[in-house]
Design a protein around this nucleic acid. Structure first.
Lengths: 351, 351
DNA sequence: CTGAAAGCGCTAACAG
DNA sequence: CTGTTAGCGCTTTCAG
């Protein structure tokens, strides 16, 4: 992450006036102020500042100069209140969720490119999803993008009755809900393909249980193994390091030569146990994770893993939301994005 | 993180009307609708819905019922536009930054308790801090809470001329800026104390360079060592795993029995190198991290580390922002919160 | 091409 | 206690 050098915040007042905590009477300039200063009407000023067609080059110039001098910034609330459209996309995300952070980053750029703004609403241990959604609704977002929502399908459907809802990173089978997600079965398949290519035959899968995506990953694993004429072996796991540790312990009773794990966190647990048990990775056992989290790319972990295509996921999500708003007819309700394998140091041919 | 069970989003329309993507003419009910339905004036309805003193129990009841039936939700923008106060606190955070996620969680609860709302604005690789700030300003936030801002002090000061600014998790020495941060020197000192208590004498410190907090942690380490009559040994490091790996390699030339590291990520790099070099942790070398990140608590990592007090940091930040808004006079511009050591498995007496 | 006037949904004076 | 009347700052007809 490059450390951006920020010179200023572009407040751009004619001269930076310093005043104490609350100097009263120094309100921000309004459109009326700008218009007055430029010697035109508010309406004209409004047109110029939105650069709508109409105003002459001369007026345009004068208004722009006046606005610049006053350090004018339009009031979002007033603007949105008046115009029927808000061009606001609400995003619900888990504040502690690393992958959601990545997705939010992608959403910002995708939205900006299409001329929309994002309104963020975080889910925290003390702030449930429904609360986050409600805040967005009150802000008059035009559509909602939900990252890995916990809500029941029925609740999502109810919500989708009020405004377009795009669910990202969770499979929801319902007519009303747009979904953008990763082809998790394909990801699992790629992991198996890779291991087979290295010469492995005894490949186990540590399962994610009920977690979103787990069913697909499990299925992808099963199908791939079967396609190769091999016997699938699924071990109960979960989404935490602890789950991985438990699974690895079970695995050690009759160790395979390779294992695909539900996600990186779980894989971390697996790696920990293997290390303590003296099972060398990748010499004695190959391990493949899922998510390409920061953990996976750490030098001393160097975990082979399946990466989701953040840019594509977020672009599709934003586009779908906007398509719905525009009334563009849409063929597929569910858009599935292919992941790709990132080969690192935890996989090698069996010895 | 408990998986919240969400039954619905509380839209609460009398009957859940299902309509297609964009059924026109089905706008949300306004205050006027509610008032009409309850047979009272808008003003009265407004009073009831904000539960302001005045309205009789009877009218209150009728308005509430009407609002409930219509599924009325006040329009945030209209409300804020009209009232001089917005009760909105803008928060700038790094979307990829794990610790910022924790802080945002704390801020939400702190703000809610004081009757304020949060407006989130994320910094991403493609969205610089100044942009994030500008968005918040346009939303007419009353104060800004900046998490570990990159901006130059001068830019922060300029910003603080327009509205109260509270900087969290970064030291800024300036009259106009309120700062809430962790006593990083104290944290480093606690780490050294702990190691000394275990019997270590040769303790090195892997430095964070120019990163926020690094100087304080380095100083805390130095002072603690000196206080014990020991020779400080600072090794160049940084904030990534790679930096830690480099530092550890340097360290191995003349290994100490213990090392305090700038942060957990860097410590991860250190641990990786030590492991590969066959230096047992904690038998041959004790390692202390900083941040108590998720990584530190992973079972197979189990890193002794210094934890920041998120709840206190966020509570103080919100309170300070509100104090400024209320014009409450404030004594200390900078509030420093003590961290605490979390002892785990990477520290033990020297052998 | 420009200006006057109406009003988005709500709150905040005032009257009654 | 309740209703009427003005706007918040902006966009949007609709005339000029």
């Amino acid at each position: 992450m490059p450390r951006a050098i920020v010179k200023g915040f572009g407040l751009n007042r004619s001269k930076s006036i310093r005043y104490g905590a609350r100097m009263p009477g120094s309100k921000r300039p309004t459109l009326a102020d700008v218009a007055a200063s430029a010697g035109v009407s508010v309406a004209l000023a409004s047109l110029v500042l939105r650069d709508a067609p109409g105003p002459s080059a001369a007026s345009r110039e004068r208004v722009l100069v006046a606005a610049g001098e006053l350090g004018y910034r339009p009031d979002t609330r007033a603007r949105l209140l008046r115009s029927s459209r808000t061009r606001l996309l609400g995003v619900v995300f888990g504040v502690q969720h690393e992958f959601h952070g990545d997705l939010v980053g992608g959403l910002y750029t995708a939205a900006e490119q299409r001329g929309y703004e994002l309104a963020l609403s975080g889910v925290t241990p003390g702030r449930v999803e429904s609360r986050a959604v409600r805040g967005l609704l009150d802000d008059r977002c035009e559509a909602l993008i939900l990252l890995g929502p916990h809500a029941a399908t029925s609740a999502l459907v109810e919500l989708a009755a009020s405004l377009p809802v795009v669910v990202v990173a969770r499979a929801v089978r319902h007519q009303e809900i747009d979904v953008v997600r990763t082809a998790d079965d394909d990801g699992a398949r790629q992991a198996v393909d890779h291991l087979i290519g290295l010469g492995h035959r005894r490949i186990a899968h540590v399962d994610g249980g009920l977690a979103p995506g787990a069913a697909d990953r499990r299925r992808g694993y099963r199908e791939a193994m079967t396609a190769y004429g091999l016997e699938p072996a699924v071990v109960a796991g979960g989404l935490t390091e602890q789950d991985g540790a438990t699974a690895a312990t079970a695995l050690l009773a009759d160790p395979p030569t390779a294992v695909t794990v539900f996600n990186d966190r779980c894989a971390a647990g697996v790696l920990g146990v293997l290390q303590r048990a003296g099972v060398g990775v990748p010499e004695a056992m190959s391990v493949v994770g899922y998510d390409d989290s920061r953990f996976a790319s750490m030098p001393h972990v160097d975990l082979t893993t399946v990466a989701q295509d953040v840019e594509r996921l977020t672009t599709l999500a934003v586009e779908r939301a906007i398509d719905r708003l525009d009334g563009t007819s849409v063929d597929t309700r569910e858009q599935v994005v292919a992941p790709h394998l990132v080969v690192r140091g935890t996989t090698a041919p069996p010895t």
